[in-house]
Design a protein around this nucleic acid. Structure first.
Lengths: 335, 335
DNA sequence: ACCGGCCACGAAAACGATTGATTGGAGAGC
DNA sequence: GCTCTCCAATCAATCGTTTTCGTGGCCGGT
């Protein structure tokens, strides 16, 4: 590849002039500019982003650490981040922590060493301390937390209105006559799942609480075990799964127990399944605006770069409650 | 951030010694090494990947240009690439062309300007010429083509055994009694879809060909239109969709036409839907090993970096035919 | 005692751009 | 005609590493 020196030589000017033409960073005589452009054309010169980053403060790149690249909701967030970043001329460096704090920390280190202008992180369940301590004392690289939102975070954050949405979902189900729920709440070290659990509690009168079954197992096999046991006791009229993997486990249990949805038991899930409308039963879903969350994270990051000292913001995007047949036609029985 | 100079000063050695300690690139006295390590610890020094890349020939990063980040199959490939790259200490720069040749070219340029060690590209439908010409004359950055595989490509490639799989699928359906198919073949500028179409032709006796309906419309609305029309003519006993978006369109048409699967019409799809087993009808699917394809692309890239002059390889991973109820219980009617 | 070789380390030149300081010349004002 | 200003363009320092050459000291062999 040609370098700026060769371009300058060919155009008969200095490298600084070429640089200024390239970056439009000070006036240059039209005739010189033309010569430079011609030389660029002829040599097939392309700016070297590495050398450029070396000299300047910024790299025009951002890092994204995702906690589970295999999960469709996160894939959508990646998509949203990529889209918003590209639209602003930022390149995206992607890393996956696979819910492993060690890999997460390694990823953050790698990204920092590559001098990304900022970081977007969907934290894994157990990472809080490590990553924070790694982030704070360093050169102040802005960080935006994605999806997994923490109280009193020093960082900007974007999440969903999990608590409200869960409350609305449960209230809807209650209005349809449901009183006894099986909530598959999932790993309570994950803020998202904690919020959804809280929303559930918000909607349940204290007196009814004892009737509810909550599964907060971490390992998916344990979840399946617990759900199966709970179903045998035949107490719930409605199952709520707080995430897609949990919904998968729950649906498998329902299938294995021979319980049909919605005729024998109602079912609702957060995040849900793609193309849910094409298959039966169609599942009542609280859908996360995953793409938009990713895009919003980039916006927050840009804002932060422009105003490093503004106080941190937490953005909550609305989820949509999509009612489908898995929660229809419930006939409350006298209990 | 501390630099290598500060570390050297603190340790009372030269920067070259620090560098050699860091990279284990020549013998250093255990005592000096210890001093250096201590200084690194104390300053919290972290190697600067940008400066490092500046000096060395490699950047330890690879670029991935994906043609449709929104599609789950491609998201899985991204996941596979990320996984394999991280395992080898490579960082991944991600770009999405969204099936737009202009964006694709821009992405390739950006990645080259960042001096990625190599590129993995899932080409978009119309890009052939542009990107090729951009890639060839440059500094020889290895390129691996992913999913969309081209004949006589000068690059390494990894795809799926589309033609074989389609032939096997059709043969299976024929064995079950189907003779008249509606193939939703999709955009024939996409090599993957061309291969699937060829596999279909392979399996159909010439005499039967006139009975088959093939929809190769590009725009998804046109596809839907064409499928709807074809269904009204009531000729096919089985619909085959050559990709997930096409399957979505086809299933919507079936639903709108009030045709139940599999009772009134059989259905099979390539790539398919996640968690297909949980919902009805369960769909007979030819599943792409998307994750593995991504990982394989990284392997090819690594091999290529090690042996730049080896002749280009094309890898074809096997797809699996997953038989489900959408193609069961067909009762051939006398026609 | 001298020479050669080895070993641990250091000095300094890249890598390819950006950018603050500086120069040279043209034009304006008196 | 002289100075002052302004503008375009150049010079040279700089970013933080890696790596090529050297250098000096020590040891062993003759």
């Amino acid at each position: 590849m040609a370098t700026i020196v060769q371009v300058a030589r060919l155009a008969g000017v200095s490298t600084s002039t070429v640089s200024h033409v390239l970056n439009d960073t000070r006036n240059v005589e039209p005739s010189t500019r033309a010569k430079v452009m011609a030389a660029i054309e002829e040599t097939g010169y392309r700016q070297d982003a590495v050398a450029r980053a070396m000299r300047r403060a910024r790299t025009d790149s951002i890092g994204l650490v995702i906690s589970d690249a295999g999960e469709p909701a996160f894939a959508e967030m990646v998509h949203g981040v990529e889209h918003a970043a590209a639209a602003r001329g930022l390149t995206l460096i992607l890393a996956n922590s696979a819910e492993d704090p060690v890999r997460e920390e390694r990823a953050v280190n790698t990204l920092l060493s590559r001098r990304v202008d900022g970081l977007i992180i969907a934290r894994c369940a157990e990472s809080s301390a490590t990553v924070s301590s790694r982030l704070e004392p360093e050169a102040p690289r802005p960080v935006v937390l994605l999806d997994r939102v923490f109280d009193n975070s020093p960082h900007d954050q974007v999440g969903a209105d999990n608590r409200d949405s869960m409350r609305r979902l449960v209230e809807h189900l209650q209005a349809a006559g449901h009183r006894r729920f099986l909530l598959v709440a999932g790993d309570q070290r994950v803020p998202t799942l904690v919020e959804r659990f809280r929303g559930f509690r918000d909607a349940i009168p204290d007196a009814d609480l004892p009737q509810q079954v909550v599964v907060d197992a971490v390992d998916i096999a344990e979840v399946r075990q617990a759900v199966a046991t709970a179903l045998q006791q035949q107490r719930a009229s409605c199952v709520i799964a707080a995430s897609t993997p949990l919904a998968v486990a729950a649906l498998e249990c329902l299938r294995d127990a021979g319980l049909a949805t919605p005729d024998q038991i109602a079912f609702a899930a957060f995040d849900g399944f793609s193309h849910s409308d094409l298959f039966r039963p169609t599942i009542t879903t609280v859908r996360q605006p995953a793409f938009e969350m990713g895009a919003a994270a980039v916006s927050l990051l840009i804002d932060r770069l422009a105003a490093p000292d503004a106080s941190p913001r937490t953005l909550r995007l609305n989820q949509t409650l999509e009612l489908r047949e898995s929660t229809e036609n419930y006939e409350p029985r006298a209990s």
